[in-house]
Simulated assay, not measured.
Amino acid sequence: MTSPISGITSAMSGIPGLGALPGVGDVAGTAATTGTPSTSGADFASILASSVDQLQGMHSTTDALATQAATGDLNDVTDYMIASNEAKLATDTVVTLKNQAVSAFTEIMRMNV
């Protein structure tokens, strides 16, 4: 039997730089990084931009597989179902991260100086 977390881990591995963020550990249970700065030289904006680009690529792949399924050219419909679920999970993750970032920004703006 496969672990249900393995599916989440594989879907989240599609988001580049997610494990490089301080305090964000791997879903599989490895230790999270402490608040040390990243030595890779990548800043948050470039990580976010590449994540959105990869998410767009996942949706393009899903759309192409959906078109193949609709025209009857797709040999195995499970390919489409897997791609669709991966894109949905990645989208949900990005939306959750965005909501948390907006919430944190709102709280920072409410602070008295």
Rank of each mutant, 00 (worst) to 15 (best):
I8F: 04
A11R: 00
T96W: 09
N99R: 14
T91Q: 06
T39K: 10
V113G: 08
T62I: 04
T2D: 08
S46L: 08
V102K: 05
R110P: 00
G7Q: 09
L97V: 07
Q56K: 13
A66P: 01
A31Y: 09
A32I: 01
T96I: 10
S38Q: 04
K88I: 13
S13I: 04
D43L: 00
E86C: 05
Q68T: 04
T39S: 14
P37M: 06
F105H: 14
S6I: 11
M81C: 05
G14H: 00
S60H: 04
I5R: 02
L55H: 09
V113L: 11
D53E: 03
A101H: 04
Y80K: 04
S10A: 06
K88Y: 09
L18E: 06
A70E: 11
A32H: 08
G19K: 04
D73H: 09
N75H: 12
G25N: 09
D76E: 13
N99C: 12
L21G: 09
A104R: 11
A83S: 10
E86T: 15
S3R: 04
A104D: 13
L18P: 08
L18M: 08
R110M: 10
M111V: 05
M109W: 07
V24F: 03
T71D: 14
V94Q: 11
L18A: 03
Q54I: 14
K98T: 14
N112H: 12
T9V: 14
T106E: 13
L89A: 15
A83M: 05
S46C: 01
A69D: 08
G57H: 06
S46Y: 00
T78N: 10
S84G: 02
Q54V: 14
K98S: 15
D26C: 06
T62M: 15
T91S: 13
P37Q: 02
V113Y: 13
S40T: 15
A42T: 06
F44S: 15
R110D: 08
